[in-house]
Nucleic acid binder design. Sequence first.
DNA 1: ACATTCGCGTAACAGATGTTTTGTTAATTG
DNA 2: CAATTAACAAAACATCTGTTACGCGAATGT
Lengths: 199, 199
Amino acid sequence: MAMARHKGDHEARRRDVSAAVWRVLASHGFGGLTLRAVATEMGATTGLLTHYFPSKKDLIEHALTLLDEHRMADRPTEFPDGLAGLRAMLLEILPLTEQAVTSNRIWVGSWDAALANPELAAGHAVRYRRSRERIRTQVVAAQQLDELPPSDPDDTATALLSFVLGLIVQTLLDQAAFPAGQQIRLLDQRLAELARTIQ
Amino acid sequence: MAMARHKGDHEARRRDVSAAVWRVLASHGFGGLTLRAVATEMGATTGLLTHYFPSKKDLIEHALTLLDEHRMADRPTEFPDGLAGLRAMLLEILPLTEQAVTSNRIWVGSWDAALANPELAAGHAVRYRRSRERIRTQVVAAQQLDELPPSDPDDTATALLSFVLGLIVQTLLDQAAFPAGQQIRLLDQRLAELARTIQ
DNA sequence: ACATTCGCGTAACAGATGTTTTGTTAATTG
DNA sequence: CAATTAACAAAACATCTGTTACGCGAATGT
């Protein structure tokens, strides 16, 4: 059958493939990620995939790298200083939109593979260390503005990331119980509690 | 080669098999769980496995059910009322010991499969709902003892389970950064913050 | 107009995987 | 002590996996 030829540039096509990888990961998890599944997901064959990616590992790596960049690009680089900025930053992480649900579902799913592969685990360790660092910066700023009482910002950042990650997990496993409004309410309560704590 | 026959009862053997499943899950994750891997892990063949379990799904289900029971059996059924009991309950969940690391690693790894299978997800939803309920009971008790200020116990329980789950994830992915002492310190800080919050 | 390269479907391939079948040995039963 | 059955190993099986080889039409350059 004569297929329509996409003269478009190489890189755009690789992005299409990666998008298909995301959709398969989101619906079938890492356990269900096969070349055939990705191919049928985008209405193509494995021949196309191997034309753009030499191996499955390359395919996954590129898709995850792109997902990470995508996520970074979607959210503001700079948040306003202080508590409001901290709140905005944490809201960006939570699965509040369909998009965010999908991307979080992929990251949660990647933990199994990461825990079985030290190399992947190291990558995740770096990633979450960076998250903590970014949260820490906002905590310090809020403290300097007297919006938060003094505390060890490292511990506070770790505690906040823990809270957010745990809420993500509970939400994904029981989305009906944690609609967006509920998640936001819980986060606001958490931040209010932080602000009202006696030192 | 003439193998030693285990005349032992059927159920004990199924427990042996499940234990082998745990070890494979702990070291290779769900992605690396194959009948061959389980068989060699216990020095047997796939023939033994299929003799005790009709299919792989049955094998996994039984192993996870047993792991859940096992975990419940290991920890006290009753915790003392109040803040100390709440603390003890949450400490039981954290990956403080090698055993707890292993079991938590399996649970975190199961999330990928659960998110791809509504049936498994439903099981997890029930499980974590139960966890919240048990935490909630302790929160209420602590409030009645005036060890915690009044608050919506449902929200507080959810927030606490979120915190613990998120801390588990961060710990497993970067165990060097979160030794047992650090986890306990963070939890104690979290509980102290809860106790010191102005209503 | 012709040669070359690109894009991608087709299909073959070897290895792994879950399942089924078969055979063998040790316990159990009558 | 024969007969049956439980407890496995061994191997065959079909299916699925990632990878590779191949072919063909369309675009592109000359």
